[in-house]
Nucleic acid binder design. Sequence first.
DNA 1: GCGAAACGTATACGATGTACACCTATCGTG
DNA 2: CACGATAGGTGTACATCGTATACGTTTCGC
Lengths: 242, 242
Amino acid sequence: MTHQAVVRRVTLSRDRVLRAAVALADKVGIDSLSMRRLSQDLGVVPMALYKHVANKEELLDGMVDVVVGEIDPPVRDTDWQSAVRLRILSARRALLRHPWACAVIQTRTTPTPAVLEYLNSTIGMFRAGGFSIDLTHHVMHAMGSRLWGFSQELFTDSSGGSSDNSADGPPGPDPEMQAVMLREMANRYPYIAEVTAAVAHDEESIVGSGCDDQFEFEFAVDLQLDGFERLRQQGWTSASRS
Amino acid sequence: MTHQAVVRRVTLSRDRVLRAAVALADKVGIDSLSMRRLSQDLGVVPMALYKHVANKEELLDGMVDVVVGEIDPPVRDTDWQSAVRLRILSARRALLRHPWACAVIQTRTTPTPAVLEYLNSTIGMFRAGGFSIDLTHHVMHAMGSRLWGFSQELFTDSSGGSSDNSADGPPGPDPEMQAVMLREMANRYPYIAEVTAAVAHDEESIVGSGCDDQFEFEFAVDLQLDGFERLRQQGWTSASRS
DNA sequence: GCGAAACGTATACGATGTACACCTATCGTG
DNA sequence: CACGATAGGTGTACATCGTATACGTTTCGC
């Protein structure tokens, strides 16, 4: 039945399309991921993709599913706090492997089954840890994007903005000028300057990224988990609104 | 000097463009905001806009600035906790007025001066409240998107996904079928079902939005603020990493 | 009153998502 | 074994988008 096997091109499949899309986004960034470019990567005409995904939205949904699929399943036989912690850190690792995924997840409107599965099992970890349904509900909300392995970093970029955008194009930004702007910025935003100065020991970036992202993330997660544990021990209930 | 005043069309300005863009996005949604559509709203040819904003990115930056400008300045003469709380709730109100703003903020790469101003004064509130620079730094990270008045809601939409997307188009989704799917979903995602059941007392939505968003938001903010206060009182330092 | 800037216009290009019609290989069934 | 259905790939075409470039036209300081 494979008498044409040598000549026959490998056929597409939803799975192959999705994996290729993830790989391509990893390589060239999410903004450069177009249906056309993807089809080209697969050696196929653009419209061929539409036999496997309804449209680009569904493609993105599928890509998220691939990433979510990389998150480790819950570990068993531990306290809820370590279990949740491990899970979230695993989610974070998955998202660090696919830097575009945060942005894409944030644009999704309808959760896919894989996402529901992830949420469901995460909720289950709180429930198994003795959280009431009520508290679990609010706790899930409170975790927010941390559940996805990121915390909506405020900046990823360095190079703070000058007040007016006088044209400094491709030519390297005059270093002396830059020093002046930095000083001016320190005047205008003294508190920011204070923090960044404290952070920039052996770093050169102006703002952000001069700190250990992983540490920041774990700091936030642990602080929240501690808060949750305190509420649980107190038998907190949403009826007791302050 | 205004002898032609009656005939002369109102001239554009960066400010008018920005405000029109905000209004348009409020009305038709951010996805339908194109340079062409905006120019049409302003009774002008598309390219006219480019005399006031360099490109669409800068337009979006400007729109964020407008929204940020609506956030109340810090209140004085209170404890840091209420002050920060009020500020963040004010930010939240601004973002609820412009539902597109969360999404846009998350896509910005470079902070504008207005944004820096906002961050700076918020940092200042922690500093004035007795937080060390070090702790302030981590606390800002931990607040994450909450600083912006939102917590990355997991769903805004109802209508959970079925496993396979059999074609149900515009015609109303068969109510009996829907009930079956709901039951099936409760099987597959028991924990989600549990939480949503507890929440859906007098609501009909399948998942999410059956709860008081404002309450959830304040719950998360207050929990974090309490955690911060505890760290502050303990004289926490990032040197003491667990 | 004149030259220069600031502002609006006209036209055009390349890229994108995707509707629609068409071809073709594969396979279950008579 | 033939054949028609069906799944999968192709080709063409269109609307829409952001924006480069070149051109008019108002406005204002000197």
